[in-house]
Computed example of a mutant assay.
Amino acid sequence: MRQYLQCGRFGYNLAQRPLVMGILNVTPDSFSDGGRYQGLEFAVERAEQMIKDGVDIIDIGGESTRPGSPSVPVDEELRRIMPAIYALRELGYPLSIDTCKPEVMREAIIAGADMINDINGFRAPGAIEAVKDSDCGLCVMHMQGTPQDMQAQPEYVDVVADVIAFLRERIDALLAAGVARERITIDPGFGFGKSVEHNYALLRSINRMESELGLPVLAGLSRKSMIGAVTGRSVEQRLAGSLAGALAAVAQGARIVRVHDVAETVDALKVWQAATTNNQ
C-alpha cells in the first residue's frame, strides 16, 4: 500500500505519522468561523499561529460549502484567496486551496499552491486539465448533490460501497490523464450529502477505503453536524467531539485530518501515538 504523498514542493512519508491540515477560511459566511480571517492581515496572523501550533498543511478556502450556501463567482473567489496565497507562500509551509473551479485551480497553482482540495472530485469541465500538468497534490472528495441541495434527502444503496465506487471512478479519470498516484489523496466527504448514520458508517470504514483504493484518506469532521448530532453541542462547543472524531478517524487509518483547532489536535495525536506506538 502506498505510504507517500507528493504535495507540490513537499513530500510526506505518511507511514510516519498522521498529518494535520489547518482550515483557513477567507470567507464571510463559513459555518464555523466565517468572517474571522477575511482580511489579509488576520489571515496571515491565523496562519502563523497554526504554524506555531504544529500544522502540516494550511487549507485556504474562498467559498463557503456549508449546506445551503450559494456559489461564489470566480472573480470574487480569486479576489479572496489570491492575496492570501501570495502572502502565505513566503512562510514556507504547504498551501492547499479548497476550490472546485478550474479557473481558480490554474491561478492558485501559478501562485504556488501545493495542493488542490476539490469537494467536487475534479468533475467540473476543465478541472482535470487545470491540474494534470502540475506537481501539486490533489484531494478527491465525494459529494452527493451540491452544497445548495446536498442535505435535502441524501440516499444510498450502500453508502460505503457507493462512495468507494465514486472515488475509484475519479481516481481512474485522473490516472488516465497522466496524474501520478503519489499526488492523490481521497476524502469520503463527511457532511456532504450524508445523513448522520451515513457519516458514521463511513468513519467506521476508512480502513476499508484505503485498503480497496490504495490511497491515503483525508478526514474532515471538525465541528460538523455529525459531531453536534451525537453531543448535542453547538458549533462553538464541539472541540471535544471534534478531537474524538479526529482520533477515531486516525485509528481507522486516516492519514490526514482537516481541522479548525490545530494545537489541540496536534496534542491529541501526540498522546494517541505515544499510547499506541508499542502496540503497532
Rank of each mutant, 00 (worst) to 15 (best):
V74S: 03
L95F: 04
K270Y: 11
D187K: 08
K101F: 09
R255Q: 12
Y86N: 15
G228D: 07
T276Q: 10
N279C: 15
G62A: 08
I116A: 05
A87H: 08
K194T: 00
A274D: 05
G145Y: 07
D261G: 06
G241M: 03
I256E: 04
G22R: 00
Q38N: 13
E236P: 04
D162R: 05
G112I: 13
C139V: 15
G253P: 15
G92V: 01
E45M: 07
E45Q: 07
G22K: 02
D118H: 00
I171P: 08
M50H: 06
D149T: 12
D172Q: 13
S225V: 08
S69C: 10
R233Q: 14
V257C: 04
H142K: 11
C7A: 08
Q6I: 11
A124F: 12
S96A: 00
L213I: 00
S71P: 05
V74M: 00
T231S: 02
A274W: 05
A15I: 04
M226K: 02
I171H: 06
N207F: 14
G193K: 06
F42P: 12
M143C: 09
V131F: 02
C139P: 12
D59C: 15
I85S: 00
L167M: 11
A152W: 13
A84K: 08
S64N: 11
E45W: 09
Q3L: 14
A180H: 11
Q252F: 08
A274Q: 07
M209L: 06
F31T: 15
G92L: 02
Q49P: 15
G39K: 11
Y12L: 10
Q273R: 12
I110E: 12
Y156V: 13
H260L: 14
Y12S: 08
G62W: 04
M50N: 01
S225F: 06
S205E: 13
A43R: 06
H142G: 08
Q252S: 10
I81G: 03
E182F: 02
V257R: 02
D56A: 11
A176L: 04
A244K: 09
Y93G: 06
D114R: 09
P83T: 09
M226E: 01
L213A: 00
S96T: 04
R168M: 13
G241S: 07
F166K: 07
F190P: 10
D118S: 02
R66H: 14
N207V: 14
D118N: 03
Q3M: 09
Q16C: 07
G92N: 02
V157T: 11
L175R: 13
E155Q: 14
N199R: 05
L95E: 04
P28Q: 08
D114K: 08
P216T: 12
R238Q: 03
E41Q: 10
H260P: 13
D187L: 11
A180G: 09
D53T: 05
V74C: 05
V196W: 01
V140Q: 02
Q148A: 15
I97A: 04
A268R: 13
D114Q: 10
E210Y: 03
C139H: 08
